[in-house]
Write a protein that binds this DNA or RNA. Structure first.
Length: 828
RNA sequence: GCCCGAGUGGCGGAAUUGGUAGACGCAAGGGACUUAAAAUCCCUCAGAGCUUGGCUCUGUACCGGUUCAAAUCCGGUCUCGGGCACCA
């Protein structure tokens, strides 16, 4: 053992040892309770960043802790390896995405090993491996056969920069989640996963997640699913037998519906305007609107405009001829893409009606007021009583909602319905580096799934990447041209690839049996390990990945693969790593490279600071000075053991009765064990756990000065030994080295977690605060659980207490044992 | 606009059930050791005041309330962060 703490030497020594002994290998043998700890796997972008370091350090503490508590812990790692950066790198520097990806994986694996994370590398997976995406293609076909996958032509979010469509979840404030450029709507053929079929279940099962997931994530998911109840109403288009369908949450205002607004993307637009003389105007308006990016279109400031289609529809209750407008504010995506407009009771419709001179009819009167459609200056959106509403006049509007819906139902013109904001998940990507969609287009048979025996549909490697926006594999004739699985005739393959979020929707299942060749995963293995007991990752996936994975789990359940409803029992969303008040980014120049930290301070100091600087769920401020503090602490720990190593080696840690001089240290030791155990177990508060261990080190430095006899060193040894074991999940390398230096053998990961003795956790003397009229006037030290009389006697003896009691009558004394005594004594 | 969270020293943060606010660390200042520096060790460190080895007052975004006692509970306000949002 060296005098000086040299992290590099210590860390590489033990990393080698762990690898050589397969220390982190797990399987489902044994009678220990299982524990599945999962961190969100990284995209192999090239190097790990501080966000990974923080995420995986938190996970590693829990994994090691649970192992030491006697659990059989599955702690896997892999690569979310399909995705656009690989392709962009290929376009920019002519490296094949596969080569680029696998080189990155190799480098990042080395980096993760240098951090000392306890992954079972035997279970490593990369989603770009055909052995992985083969099963995804199988799921796709099975979902297709079950009606959970369909193809449709629709207006979709298009990112010009990435040359691909995006799912709704991947558009943030009208911008691409990946590159930040503006998103436009563009008409496309797309494959969809029918996530809406699970909308209600996804919402209902949030209840099951309440005990283990952060409230914040659940409320975001609830918002996203966006359930609202209302009425579906069919309006007949004048002069035809066709209908326009509308979803409304205000059927009570139907008598006031005086016109109709439909989205520019609505498929009826063309037909409606045909032959009315409005055709040109409508076409120009639609084209103009479609050119506006999504962000502008959905902003409050965007001018509300519309064009009359030249047609009318009939209000089913009043028979009123409602002009049909194409309006730029109507979302094709929500409800039916058409809205019945009630200008008297909806501000937007009111503004629109004023602008285009459309009729306004008041149908709800608020109590004690009388609105007049001629004079009203804004819409009335509140509650009231129905007027101008035929047989419903006089009814409260809240009652009228149901009554009118029933009435419509009887006429065959409407029905009560539930509408979700959630849209089906569009998964086609017009990009190369992804899993091919296993479908074939046959001239005779139409769209046909690939035969299951023919999977995987391998992504061709010999392609040219130009970045022009045409799917590269569509250029590969040998890939595209195939035979129809049904009739054997000439056919063409689908050339879009799947959204990479599909891969991350089930990778946690593959980890359970990563080498399974004949099926996606072994049922018994999955049954043993799943669900994930603790999932850890960034809040940025609150909706995206976490919603998709929940959906996919339910689909796989319905396909008979798994028998649980939710994949992740508990979720911890860790905060971002911030420096100088901003998220680390190249453009801001505030990036800290973990590799430099490992080089300068070692992995242990890096891990320690990540855990100590803030509680895991909060954003963490990076501080260059802070990591020096962590390094200082580890050096202090090193010296402590080094200075005493001879005495510690010869001391007997099992001596039961400590000498008087060491009672305080023994007490502190057991208090620290209790605190650290509870902080990890109950609260995930690693920062306070570390603070407690720092206190113990401070006390040990004091004890070191006074200890001389073997009996005293026995207590010191117990303290140091417990400390090293407890610190090992946090800083596994230095602790292992010190463990050995003290004359112990074996891996700390195989040691059991120290137990505290409750008798030694309690102080025998306590400091009781003495208050007079609620203000602190003194403190007295008394025996633990001293009775009130004793404490009172001591309290009254305090000079400062006497001073404040002078000229006062003691009315009442409140005593909380071991804490506080409050003397209530108002002045005379 | 609706729905969540948060607000404590110069800074990161602690106070777990309402019971001594500021643990632990960083920064800063002072001292010891040293030829010197680094490292290390020790001390001070919320603000104001005073009769200064100690004591008083104020203090957990702001205003008010409940309570013997509030950072913690309740009502209101402000600020910041996040989500949803022309959602029919």
């Amino acid at each position: 053992m060296n005098t000086e703490y040299n992290p590099q030497a210590v860390e590489s020594k033990w990393q080698q040892s762990w690898q050589d002994t397969n220390l982190f290998r797990v399987d489902m043998k044994g009678d220990k309770p299982k524990y599945y700890l999962l961190e969100m796997f990284p995209y192999p972008s090239g190097r790990i960043h501080m966000g990974h370091v923080r995420n995986y350090t938190i996970g590693d503490v829990v994994a090691r802790y649970k192992t030491m508590r006697g659990h059989n812990v599955l702690h896997p790692m892999g690569w979310d390896a399909f995705g656009m950066p690989a392709e962009n790198a290929a376009i920019a520097s002519k490296i094949h995405p596969k080569k680029w990806t696998y080189e990155n994986i190799d480098y990042m694996r080395t980096q993760l090993k240098k951090m000392g994370f306890s992954y079972d590398w035997n279970r490593e997976i990369a989603t770009c491996d055909p052995e992985y995406y083969k099963w995804e293609q199988l799921f796709f076909i099975q979902m297709y056969n079950k009606g959970l996958v369909y193809k449709s032509r629709a207006f979709l979010n298009w990112c010009e920069q990435c040359k691909t469509v995006l799912a709704n979840e991947q558009v943030v404030e009208g911008q691409c989640w990946r590159c930040g450029s503006q998103v436009f709507l563009k008409e496309h053929d797309q494959w969809f996963f029918k996530i809406t079929a699970y909308a209600q279940e996804l919402l209902d099962d949030i209840e099951k997640l309440k005990k283990g997931w952060p409230e914040r994530v659940l409320s975001m998911q609830k918002n996203w699913i966006g359930r609202s109840t209302g009425t579906l109403i069919r309006f007949q288009i004048e002069g035809t037998s066709d209908d326009i369908e509308v979803f409304t949450t205000r059927p009570d205002t139907l008598y006031g519906a005086t016109f109709m607004s439909i989205a520019p993307e609505h498929p009826l637009v063309k037909a409606l305007s045909a032959g009315t003389g409005q055709e040109d105007k409508v076409r120009d308006f639609v084209n103009k609107t479609l050119q506006v990016d999504t962000f502008t279109r959905t902003s409050d400031l965007y001018e509300k405009e519309g064009v009359f289609t030249g047609r009318y529809c009939i209000n089913p209750l009043t028979g009123f001829k409602m002009p049909i407008y194409v309006a730029n504010f109507v979302l094709y995506d929500y409800g039916t893409g058409a809205v019945m407009a009630v200008p008297s009771h909806d501000q937007r419709d009111f503004d629109f009606a004023k602008k285009y001179g459309l009729k306004i009819i008041v149908v709800i009167q608020p109590e004690g007021e009388s609105l007049d459609s001629e004079t009203m200056e804004c819409a009335y959106e509140g509650e009231g009583v129905l007027v101008n509403s035929g047989e419903f006049n006089g009814m409260k509007n809240t009652d009228a909602m149901e009554a009118i819906t029933k009435h419509l139902q009887a006429q065959g013109r409407g029905s009560a319905t539930v509408n979700f904001r959630l849209r089906d998940w569009g998964i086609s990507r017009q990009r190369y580096w992804g899993a091919p969609i296993p479908m074939v287009y046959c001239e005779k048979c139409g769209t046909v799934p690939v035969n299951i025996e023919d999977l995987p549909v391998i992504l061709p490697e010999n392609v040219e990447l130009t970045g022009t926006g045409i799917s590269p594999i569509s250029q590969d004739e040998s890939f595209v041209n195939t035979t129809c699985p049904a009739c054997g005739g000439k056919a063409r393959r689908e050339t879009d690839t799947m959204d990479t979020f599909v891969e991350s929707s089930w990778y946690f299942l593959r980890y359970c049996s990563p080498h399974s060749h004949d099926k996606p995963f072994d049922k018994a293995e999955v049954h043993y390990w799943m669900p994930v007991d603790q999932y850890i990752g960034g809040i940025e996936h609150a909706i995206l990945h976490l919603l998709y994975a929940r959906f996919y789990t339910k689909v796989l359940r319905d396909l008979g693969y798994v028998d649980f409803d939710e994949p992740f029992e508990r979720l911890l969303t860790q905060g971002m790593v911030i420096k100088d008040g901003a998220k680390m980014s190249k453009s801001k120049g505030n990036v800290v490279d973990p590799e430099d930290l490992i080089k300068n301070y070692g992995a242990d100091a890096t891990r320690l600071f990540c855990l100590f600087a803030a509680p895991p769920e909060k954003d963490m401020d990076w501080s260059d000075k802070g990591i020096e503090g962590s390094y200082r602490f580890l050096s202090r720990l090193w010296r402590l053991v080094f200075d005493m190593k001879d005495q510690l080696r010869s001391a007997d840690a099992s001596a039961d009765v400590p000498p008087k001089s060491m009672e305080a240290l023994k007490r502190k030791t057991h208090q620290t064990i209790k605190k650290v155990t509870e902080d990890i177990e109950k609260r995930f508060r690693f920062n306070t756990a570390i603070a407690a261990m720092m206190e113990l080190v401070n006390d040990l430095y004091r004890a070191k000065e006074t200890a001389s006899s073997p009996g005293e060193f026995a207590v010191v040894r117990e303290a140091v030994q417990s400390l090293i074991v407890m610190l090992s999940p946090f800083v596994p390398h230095i602790t292992q080295e010190l463990w050995e230096a003290m004359g112990n053998t074996g891996q700390l990961l195989r040691m059991s977690w120290p137990e505290f003795d409750p008798n030694w956790c309690e102080e025998q003397e306590v400091t009781v605060a003495v208050q007079v009229n609620g203000k602190l006037r003194a403190t007295v030290t008394v025996a633990k659980d001293a009775d009130q009389e004793t404490v009172e006697e001591r309290a009254f003896a305090e000079a400062n207490v006497k001073r404040f009691l002078e000229g006062a009558d003691i009315k009442k004394v409140i005593y909380v044992p071991n804490k506080i005594i409050n003397i209530i004594a108002p002045l005379r």
